[in-house]
Design a protein around this nucleic acid. Structure first.
Length: 310
RNA sequence: CGCGGGUUGGAGCAGUGGUAGCUCGUCGGGCUCAUAACCCGAAGGUCGUUGGUUCGAAUCCUUCACCCGCAA
């Protein structure tokens, strides 16, 4: 079976490699164009690097609808697999492969349609999520479902960790999906549109912590934004990332009792929230490396009574 | 050549011309029923690299390397 893969970031690499490991004839990988990076080395996107190492041809288009049609027709795939590709595909392309186009989505559709499902599940404090393999349709994440695999979200898991686990599950799911198609037992079930929820791509500025909200919701937000783009606040006017933290159940007596107020002990620090207390575990100040809270406190930049967010 | 911050004993920082200091850790000793507590003492740094200015540089100028924040 000739498989054409469309995907760009880390999340898609696992699916790409799974297909190769499973013995499918992966005839090409289409990714987003290489983006300019001014600081650090210029690197190919993860799927491109992986494809090259496996000797798979890579195709990149600014707009696949306008530039990719001829290439895809020439490649004559039996099936196409999309995974975090990042571009909308036209009906003309969807009609090319005999077995259609499949998409791997990191949520249990119809919940969490959109481009940041993993982050939003964490932000909303979900306990369960999963992978959906469905037919790619013109409307975003609305195609008929071929199969789903669910997975529990760990209590202190962040988006990076959940990404890793879901990408593996996605790799397993897509291989299983192709098996179903090959032996003719694939059944596609329409989504119940009335239960659909849609979330936008998360933006960097959305990562700012509102200390007036509850420790629990700040904790969930931090998990959803870590490791990228990170939950942040201000320390003395400087960008201060909260990379790891957890709600604290003990009693802390704050001098002023204000939201965002810091209580710094010897090896740890707490922040008063609108409801509850958050214990800091790992932080990063603008221009500095990420540090565990004990090391950061050694620097003397965080003291009891300071108010975060200003 | 996009903008900016950084590189000082094991960790994190201070120190803008006169041969380095703080918190923590480490090691030794003491106190205590006990402790991540407290007390006393000790070890540990040619201040990222290159060249220069100077009587004298961690501190000023220069080369390179590496780390990081922002913007893309």
């Amino acid at each position: 079976m000739r498989v054409l893969f469309l995907g760009t970031p880390d999340f898609a690499v696992e699916a790409f490699e799974s297909l190769i490991r499973a013995g499918y004839d992966v005839i090409g990988a289409i990714t987003q164009p290489d983006r300019k990076r001014n600081r650090g080395e210029v690197t190919f996107c993860p799927v491109k690097s992986c494809a090259i190492s496996h000797g798979v041809d890579v195709y990149q288009y600014e707009s696949i609808r306008k530039e990719g049609v001829e290439d895809i027709k020439r490649l004559a795939p039996d099936v196409m697999v999309t995974c975090a590709f990042g571009q909308i595909i036209s009906q003309e392309i969807l009609d090319i492969p005999k077995y259609g186009v499949l998409n791997i989505h990191a949520s249990l559709l119809p919940k969490y349609r959109g481009s940041s499902p993993i982050q939003w599940c964490l932000i909303n404090g979900e306990k369960t999520t999963g992978i959906t393999v469905m037919r790619t349709a013109l409307a975003v994440d609305s195609g008929d479902i071929l199969l789903q695999r669910s997975m529990d979200i760990l209590p202190d898991e962040n988006a990076g960790q959940l990404f890793d686990r879901l990408s593996k599950l996605g790799g397993e799911a897509i291989v299983e999906a192709l098996r179903l198609i090959e032996d003719g037992s694939a059944v596609f079930t329409p989504q119940d549109g009335s239960k659909a929820t849609h979330y936008p791509m998360i933006r960097k500025e959305d990562g700012e912590v509102n200390w007036a909200s509850s420790a629990e919701s700040i904790f969930n937000k931090m998990r959803g934004f870590t490791p990228w783009p990170s939950a942040f606040t201000r320390l003395d006017g400087k960008l201060f990332k909260i990379l790891k933290a957890m709600p604290y159940n003990g009693e802390i007596s704050f001098e002023q009792g204000l939201a965002g107020e810091v209580y710094a002990a010897k090896n740890t620090a707490f922040v008063k929230c609108g409801k509850g207390v958050l214990q800091l575990v790992e932080v990063q100040l603008e221009g500095k490396k990420a540090l565990d809270i004990a090391s950061f406190l050694s620097g003397g930049k965080l003291k009891s009574g300071m108010i975060l967010g200003k």
